[in-house]
Amino acid sequence: MPKRLINLTVNGEAYEVAVEPWWSLLYTVREELGLTGSKEGCGTGDCGACSMLVDGRLVTSCIMLAVEADGCQVTTIEGLATDGNLHPVQQAFVEKGAVQCGYCIPGMVMAAYDLLRRNPNPTLEEVRLGLAGNLCRCTGYAKIYEAVLAAAERMRGD
């Protein structure tokens, strides 16, 4: 069977991609579009390393078929910086030293970005719940939470 042509808008750019029906969105974005920021940790929806926004919803793209995202707007970690400037969430991760090996960080940043859009002034507990779907195997949670709270403060401008 021939591959299927799907349309994806990724970080504002329109793509037409030929995919096999069993390819995940993560595989397609990494291998076909060359956007390798999103990571595969578990491949089963448990770790959050592959988190992206699809039509404004945070999903684990390792268990979403690319054909299921046909026609959708996708935002990946590559889409957060503007004009070469890091997004405040990314900047806060750098400043707080929230990154160890870095593998979980694209997913953490996407989850934090999504959380702060919905809740600009989260409590520590809300940050913990907001990131509950993201595992850090280096276990650097404390600094990650600090970074998210700092980013929230900066984005609110207080």
Partner: peptide
């Protein structure tokens, strides 16, 4: 049900 990511799907 799972994480926010899971609930969105």
């Amino acid at each position: 049900v799972g994480s926010l990511q899971t609930m969105n799907m």
